[in-house]
Amino acid sequence: MDKATHDLHDSYQQMVKVATPKPNYVKNIALAFLAGGGICVIGQLVYNLVDPVEPTSAETAAITLATMIALGALATGLGVYDWLAERVGMGAAVPITGFSNTVTAAAMEFKREGYLLGMGAKMFVIAGPVLVYGILSGFAITLLRAVFTGMLF
């Protein structure tokens, strides 16, 4: 790219920056906090409900997560979750219901291309990277912890 083109691109980027409407951060953050917090409150209610009948807290947590995943999938199937996410953004994306939504949405979307090459192959098209890098970073942190606390040797 010559200098004139480079300068043209730079000055245009500046024009675009000025023309870009600013998102309402305060409103977005508040909505995300309330919605995300609301989903967590539902999770806590499920936890408290299940807690008395489960022997350990690990089992209670597992049931709570499975319930929230099922609720997320159900809301996606009913077409509610994307409506919510459009309004509250990260409030719907961060909780585990959002993760459930990414898998369910992809499964619904690609079912039309068949169960094998459509749904089967593309179900994790959005959630896949979360899994790959989630597991990878979990391994890296555990390794660091093991090295620094002397557990490794």
């Binding site: 870009t20 994307d82 953004g89 949405a105």
Partner: peptide, 12 residues
């Protein structure tokens, strides 16, 4: 993205 995905469309 898939239609039902939790995406907040940008104003632009």
């Amino acid at each position: 993205y898939p239609i039902e995905l939790n995406i907040q469309h940008k104003g632009t």
